[in-house]
Design a protein around this nucleic acid. Sequence first.
DNA 1: AGTACCACCTGACGGC
DNA 2: TGCCGTCAGGTGGTAC
Length: 273
Amino acid sequence: MPELPDVEHFRNYVDANALHKPIEAVDVHNDYVLEDVSPEQLGRQLKGRSFERTSRHGKNLFLELDNSQFLRMHFGMTGGVSVFHELNEEPDYTRVRFDFADGDHLSFLDLRMFGAIQLLDDAQKYVAQQHLGPDAMSVNLKTFRDRIAAKRGSVKAALMDQEAIAGIGNVYSDEILFQSRIHPSADVQKLSEEDIRKLHSNTVKVLKTAAEREADPEKLPRTYLIPHREKGGLCPRCKTELATVKAVGRTAWYCPRCQPKQHQAKKKLARRS
DNA sequence: AGTACCACCTGACGGC
DNA sequence: TGCCGTCAGGTGGTAC
């Protein structure tokens, strides 16, 4: 799940369910998840503290503690969070559990164990050190254009490059390209100014819309590609069967009719004839 | 600076 | 039913 809209949803969930509650204990079930900190250190650091507010950059969620430290969560491919009350309700694949003084528990879930938890002094500093690009949900047109224009190769790869723009992954890049009617393999250097503008506005629009709808494919607009992104799936616009192409080692889904490979060349041809 | 491939992990699914 | 290959929304490393 976890691309930007999913992480934004997790953020809202934490805001609603896990803030301002003293932490009594931290139970680390699988310590692969901890970066630069041992389970014991984490427990010592968090005991008695509380999460006061959250922020997000790209796919990273930051939980700010009442001593101005930050707990960074990254959800890999299968991560998530869950708050529950009874210990016997602890969800499967809980890797770390935070126990609050009020008896609630916050689980960091992660089936495939690609996620990460890290204690930081400064979230902004982390973003800078990792060379993360601007957050995709709030990036302005000029910055978006500059970042994308600096890339070579396919537009899909450019959108997914976290150092260019942070937060877009395999699924949402497909949606952004579909809404923009641009082929995933299109050469990013050959995009027109109009293409860039469409990509930018659809990036912001798609991510905001998905976040508002809790990144739940079933709640997305009917015009979206994502719910049809499977073998035999049909384009929601023209009902053509969706096609796939490999891009950066991932599978890109697209509509061969709405997203022709040479859409610019085609336009020119049409004009000439 | 690209891309291609491998690695890290677990689970679901289709084919035999 | 079981085994096997393939694939899955991320990232970091390698080599070319």
